[in-house]
């Protein structure tokens, strides 16, 4: 178990280093002339050069990467080019907002998705299964902005239940539901698609497994077979999917937050990208990748905890 964990941790670290390098490269090399971007077309070449020196852009690539990384781990994420505020606070504030929105969606939909997935599996190839599977598959296929637009038209324009644009809720149930429900819906649609599909596949497999046959032919009662033999094994892979989804969620928030004007990290990345705000972009994108890597790591560990084959491996 320990060797497995340390190995997995090392792997995640390697991935993170690579990730940070990719982020740095993408945002450092791609935009070309940063000084020119900030100062605009009317600045002189000398002014641009002076700014480049001030920003440390005249150093070699690896040096700049090292400077960026060492500052980053100390929480010094630089200053936004366009907003002129410290990046750390800016990114963290937006990140927290996204976290609230994502958590809201996950908590509401994951149990429902699993329940429907299991229901479909126990009615394998029957009408209930077909209905759930096709619905889940369609939900998975729809881009967030399509579902976003549809729910917006339905709930804000046809029936006026929710505001067209959402803000961060204060800590009260009506406020939370009022502000988060609509932007969370497109997310929930996607998650339902993924998680119900995985739960179904896992459960179908477990139902057909040799150990389930053994359990049935031991004459055990149905509830015991389902809970202890089928679900205990089938929901294991689903855990991983939920975690991976939690990571991806942050990415798909770009679209949702844009539609609903919600001040989250996706919104921030989109604005920073269009404004070529390099420090904000670097920090925000790296944070997203970090969250993804960490949730994946946690998923694997959770899997290991629940799976004796991994847990007890020496």
């Amino acid at each position: 178990m320990l060797s497995y964990l340390s190995k997995r941790l090392l792997l995640a670290l390697v991935t993170l280093v690579l990730v940070s390098f990719i982020v740095f490269l993408a945002s450092d090399v791609l935009p070309g002339d940063v000084g020119r971007t900030i100062l605009g077309n009317f600045a002189t070449q000398a002014q641009v050069h002076a700014l480049d020196v001030k920003l440390g852009l005249d150093h070699p690539l690896l040096d700049r990467y090292w400077i960026w990384v060492s500052h980053f781990v100390r929480g010094d994420w630089g200053t936004s080019y366009t907003l002129q505020v410290p990046v750390f606070g800016l990114v963290m504030r937006h990140f927290l907002n996204s976290l609230i929105l994502g958590a809201f969606a996950l908590v509401l939909i994951v149990p429902v998705s699993i329940a429907f997935g299991v229901l479909a599996a126990t009615h394998h190839d029957r009408p209930i299964d077909k209905a759930i599977s096709v619905t889940g598959m369609s939900m998975l296929a729809l881009p967030e902005f399509v579902t976003g637009i549809v729910v917006l038209v339905l709930f804000s324009i046809v029936v006026h239940w929710f505001p067209v644009s959402s803000s961060v809720p204060v800590f009260s149930l009506p406020s939370i539901v009022r502000n988060l429900f609509l932007p969370a819906l497109p997310e929930m649609v996607l998650i339902f698609g993924y998680v119900s599909r995985m739960a179904r596949a896992g459960t179908v497999e477990a139902l057909n497994a040799g150990y389930t046959r053994t359990a049935v032919l031991k004459g055990l009662p149905r509830h015991r077979i389902m809970l202890r033999h089928v679900l205990r094994n089938s929901l294991l892979p689903t855990i991983t999917v939920v975690a991976v989804q939690a990571g991806y969620l942050v990415g798909s928030l770009i679209v949702v937050e844009t539609i609903f004007n919600y001040p989250g990290i996706g919104n921030l990345i989109y604005t920073a990208a269009t404004n070529h705000d390099q420090p904000v972009l670097q920090a925000a994108v790296f944070l997203v990748a970090l969250v993804y890597t960490v949730t994946n790591l946690m998923a694997d560990m959770l899997y290991a905890v629940f799976n004796p084959r991994v847990r007890l491996a020496s």
Partner: peptide
């Protein structure tokens, strides 16, 4: 009735014991 008879009237040993046992129990 089947549930009652299984194990007490008729029980089975399979070809592949590895996959016939629940891996998480």
């Amino acid at each position: 009735d089947l549930r009652d008879w299984r194990a007490s009237r008729v029980a089975m040993v399979y070809q592949d014991p590895g996959s016939s046992l629940n891996p998480t129990m």
